[in-house]
């Protein structure tokens, strides 16, 4: 199991666990990143952070420090 942060651009992974709590967890999950969801890592911002993802057929971005708390396989 790895964290979303470690996934290379162009790979698709599945969410196993979200280790964030409170409002941030709710926010991430409200946006459709739930257990079992496929995530495609599309791009890394020019300065190296945040990362752009494709989830449930739309695009969003989040910071590496938050991506680190999303376990995937």
């Amino acid at each position: 199991m790895r964290t979303l942060r470690e996934i290379a651009v162009g790979q698709t992974v599945t969410v196993v666990k979200i280790e964030v709590t409170g409002a941030m967890k709710r926010r991430i999950m409200d946006m459709g990143i739930t257990k079992g969801t496929d995530i495609f890592v599309r791009k890394i911002a020019p300065l190296g952070d945040p990362i752009e993802l494709k989830v449930r057929d739309y695009e969003l971005f989040l910071r590496k420090e938050d991506a680190e708390k999303i376990l995937v396989e």
Partner: peptide, 9 residues
């Protein structure tokens, strides 16, 4: 801040 943002088409 928590930073999750949509990138609309």
């Amino acid at each position: 801040a928590p930073f999750v943002m949509e990138m609309p088409a």
